[in-house]
Write a protein that binds this DNA or RNA. Structure first.
Lengths: 144, 144
DNA sequence: AACTTAATGATATTGAATATCATTATTCGA
DNA sequence: TCGAATAATGATATTCAATATCATTAAGTT
């Protein structure tokens, strides 16, 4: 069993929750799906493999994956919450093209450090942050 | 007439939209309201002054204020869009206490600069960004 | 195998935000 | 100033994501 799947299993056991066939399937589809999947998108993909699955279960399972730090919620501001695999990956932020919607994962240690300092200056102990950079990507820039 | 109100008036005129009594009232209440007001909160305050006003009008007017750059949308991730006065104020980001919900406006030129660089490295021309820092404020930190 | 407890799926519900539409108000030209 | 053209309003219905409810089913335990 791959590490992330095992971590999910362990998380459920620790919380005395059950490792059901639905959760296993949703996990697998989520893990192989493209990045930044919305619950509805994932529901569509899961239904192809098992049409009997309920959409509420997909929502519930994504929340579990998020709680277990295997997935991370991302909010691009378009009204739907998306999820991305997070296990074993380092923290990163997003650079989003306002034209074509393409998103790139970025990270800048210096920014992270400055955020810590900025919070400390105001007496805050930072537990997390979200940063989204919006602009035009190389390909869209030329076009009219 | 104060500058912001005048700018709103001019914006409407330029777009051939009408300066109605409802819009004037909503503007005034918004302008004197505390920061980060949600449409529903504002609707409540506006209704005290004019109970006949419709909530759709409040939503519509906030969108106009946003379009005219007099207000700015902020999203603290709790499901409601809030608005803050933006006219004449410089750009800033938010530091939010995850315990008491208090938010502080912050700005760091060095971070802004690094964001530009980071985007440029990926071929992006930055048009905007949103950054939210989450943590515990001085007062909440001690408490259990 | 029986039992305890959580999970599921269908459905209803919530809550924010938007759409529709008949009526009213504003703007602007004559 | 008056009226025609057009936008705005408010009431209501609708959308859409997300959550709640609940009877039934399935896991995990002893």
């Amino acid at each position: 069993m791959q590490a992330a799947r095992e971590q999910f299993f362990n998380y459920l056991a620790r919380k005395k929750l059950k490792f059901t066939s639905q959760r296993a399937l949703i996990f697998d589809v989520f893990w192989t799906a493209e990045n930044h999947v919305s619950p509805e998108e994932l529901y569509g993909q899961v239904k192809e493999k098992d049409p009997s699955i309920g959409q509420a279960t997909v929502y519930r399972t994504l929340k579990l994956l998020s709680d277990s730090t295997i997935a991370r919620e991302v909010d691009f501001g378009d009204g739907v919450t998306r999820y991305e695999p997070h296990f074993g990956t380092s923290h990163h932020d997003h650079l989003i093209c306002t034209r074509c919607g393409k998103s790139v994962e970025v990270i800048d240690e210096k920014i992270e450090k400055l955020q810590e300092n900025l919070a400390a200056e105001h007496g805050f102990t930072l537990s997390g942050h979200s940063m989204y950079l919006y602009g035009e990507c190389r390909h869209c820039k030329g076009k009219e």
